[in-house]
Design a protein around this nucleic acid. Structure first.
Lengths: 202, 202
DNA sequence: ACATGGTTTAACCAGATAGTTAAACTAAAT
DNA sequence: ATTTAGTTTAACTATCTGGTTAAACCATGT
């Protein structure tokens, strides 16, 4: 028998991703997800018994995606300045392609903070180890003593905020889609400069 | 006859604010809002006929609050560095007290981008004029030529992100409530430094 | 030929929820 | 004393929605 399972499950997750992102958990309708996946409601429940199950699967996937990527790049073994450039440029690029993820996570965070914590516990990389590694790096390269947490949060903020707040900012700036993409593209260069300014010994 | 109207309407808006923030539009229940306001459902509908009406009122208020504050401070007539310090410190302070606002707006932005635009049109300050003013300021003080939009977005990102992403970050950092508050407090000083670094002529 | 697992169809149920309505109560305003 | 705006109570409706079920279909592997 053909293994349609894999394919369909994939299709469902993809559809759920879209709809949950568009409407949030409460706003999303199982029927809408089924339609989006090109299947029917009964089959949807056949695969993921409940709405919660389905949501959890989607949420955890998004969460893993965003954090493994981040922590992996921080952990890579290249000189700091180079690493910073890579990190920021890759991360922004990732968000350009998966712009739904940060907003999705932030939204859910507002409504179910507990869920975040539970998902964190199952994460493949430990944040505290990443911070330790960042610290060592900065010590080795004789950089300005900075709170690594503050560094971490600054990078994240500068990369993620423009993506999350895009609908608003694009309107404030009166930018077309292309203009805004270009604007973000430019930031792949300016953000590393800005960050290096703050940690380079004067 | 006593003017209870004002008081009750106020109470309802306050309650709606809380519940919409906690649950989002779809997740919020009229009954819950009524309970939170200490009144009954019938009266709720008596004041704001529909759920949409109520939500709109709350949303617009939040939106106005955050943007008038921002644009007013930018527009104030003090030296740039001082203004920057004021702006950031006041703005962060404002978020500490109204931490629900940014998340609320971001969430809604994901789900109804159109609404943002319509609310913007009714805004009391025009963004483009604010940018012009920022430009003049920077020219007068002979600062590094920088894209004012980028400057604007950076400030916003650094101030808002730590508030919006708090549940997640606090968990990553393993901070208590006090520790996190203190962490944000510290940023009232470090962010202006960081920003000045990027615009001060070398 | 038959069994199997994925799939569809279509009907159904139970619970929740937005919104309505009508009747009665309260306290201030006239 | 009467009116009136604000408020409560409680019941009701219409609709939506998550979830279930049963029966049939279909393609494949055996």
């Amino acid at each position: 028998m053909a293994n349609k399972t894999h394919n369909t499950e994939e299709k469902i997750l993809e559809a759920a991703k879209t709809v949950f992102h568009r409407k949030g958990f409460e706003g999303a309708r199982m029927q809408e997800i089924a339609d989006e996946a090109g299947i029917n409601k009964a089959l949807l429940h056949y695969y993921f018994r409940t709405k919660e199950n389905l949501f959890d699967a989607v949420f955890k996937a998004a969460f893993r995606e965003i954090f493994t990527k981040l922590f992996m790049t921080i952990d890579a073994d290249v000189p700091l300045e180079k690493k910073l450039k890579n990190l920021i440029s890759e991360y922004i690029g990732f968000f350009q392609k998966n712009s739904y993820i940060p907003g999705f996570i932030l939204t859910e965070m507002n409504q179910n903070p507990e869920k975040i914590i539970s998902v964190f516990k199952s994460a493949p990389v430990s944040p505290s180890m990443v911070f330790e590694r960042m610290k060592e790096f900065m010590y080795d390269e004789k950089l300005e003593k900075t709170d690594v947490r503050e560094l971490f949060i600054n990078i994240l903020a500068l990369c993620i905020f423009p993506v999350v707040a895009r609908p608003m900012l694009q309107n404030i700036f009166d930018f077309s889609d292309e203009q805004y993409d270009q604007f973000i593209e430019k930031r792949k260069k300016t953000i590393p400069q800005l960050i290096m300014n703050t940690i380079r010994k004067k």
